[in-house]
């Protein structure tokens, strides 16, 4: 029971970074990006290329890819989403669906369907309060927490973060106040790219690298973001933890192969009873 709860915590932590990326992107760009799963996959394979094929240490590979991936997403946005910006959220969603297929299959084209792993030594677990924990889980928890703190600092203390929140709240007003939204959008993609790259590496460490690794998390990631209220970073963090723990604990009573049903039920319940999510503001229609 305690062990399962801890496992759930780890699952939840893994979901936090992509959920944060989704919620940031949604806040600024106003559409749910279905390509986030595949973006994580591609980033993880890029790290794999540096880490395994070139033999760089995992930390350095991740850092390099995170920055590069941020840049890559800005470029992708320029050719994919920017021309569609004014066409409404459905068009953008469909484009993100197409983009997701493209990115996942670029990874497949390069590395095939075989399962792979990063070049890290696997370690046996240690015990704490009779709960088994292992090194990768510790790394996951530490990295995600640091990333969360950095995000919090960025969004509340730094001008660019405050500008992002302003654009998320009200783009028109932000523009009136002299906040350039193209610049903010570029920053948002860059930060989301970094979060997704790190998230992809954490997933790759947790399981094996294979092309569907990222998209298999899609429902859980969106459930976390919706639970927290799309657009709310703190909400995404808490939403992810709740989704992770609830899904793992649920396996004690339901067959584990229906775990994906839990995030789905959470989405349905939230949409029926509290559409704005736990931490979101009620959406006011124009």
């Amino acid at each position: 029971m305690l062990q399962t709860a801890f496992n759930g915590l780890v699952t939840g932590i893994i979901v936090t970074l992509p959920a944060l990326a989704v919620t940031l992107l949604f806040g600024v760009l106003k559409f749910p990006n279905f390509a986030v799963g595949s973006m994580m996959t591609l980033a993880a394979y890029l790290v794999f290329a540096l880490n395994v094929q070139l033999g760089w240490p995992l930390v350095i590979s991740t850092a390099v890819v995170a920055v590069a991936f941020g840049g890559l997403l800005i470029a992708i946005d320029y050719v994919t989403f920017k021309p569609l910006r004014e066409r409404g959220s459905i068009t953008l969603m469909v484009a993100s669906l197409g983009l997701g297929f493209v990115l996942e299959n670029i990874a497949r084209l390069a590395y095939g369907n075989t399962a792979r792993s990063f070049a890290i030594e696997l370690a046996r677990p240690f015990r704490f309060l009779d709960i088994r924990m292992n090194r990768e889980q510790m790394i996951t928890i530490v990295v995600s927490t640091l990333a969360m703190l950095a995000m919090y600092f960025l969004l509340t203390r730094m001008p660019i973060g405050r500008a992002m929140r302003a654009v998320a709240d009200n783009p028109a007003l932000a523009l009136v106040r002299g906040i350039e939204s193209p610049r903010i959008i570029r920053w948002t993609w860059f930060i989301a790219g970094m979060l997704l790259a790190v998230g992809g590496v954490l997933i790759g460490m947790d399981r094996a690298l294979e092309p569907p690794m990222g998209s298999s998390y899609l429902v859980a990631v969106f459930a976390a973001a919706i639970l927290g209220g799309l657009g709310s970073p703190l909400g995404a963090f808490i939403g992810a933890l709740v989704i992770g723990i609830v899904s793992e604990l649920a396996t004690l009573v339901i067959p584990p192969n229906y775990r994906i049903g839990i995030p789905l039920c959470v989405i349905a319940l939230i949409l029926i009873f509290r559409p704005q999510g736990l931490f979101g503001q009620p959406y006011i229609r124009k």
Binding site: T11, I14, R207, P212, M213, S216, A220, P255, P256, N257
Partner: peptide, 14 residues
């Protein structure tokens, strides 16, 4: 004895 699905996000619970 249990059955799991292909392409699961993780196999921790199993």
């Amino acid at each position: 004895s249990l059955i799991y699905n292909p392409e699961q996000p993780s196999y921790r619970a199993e």
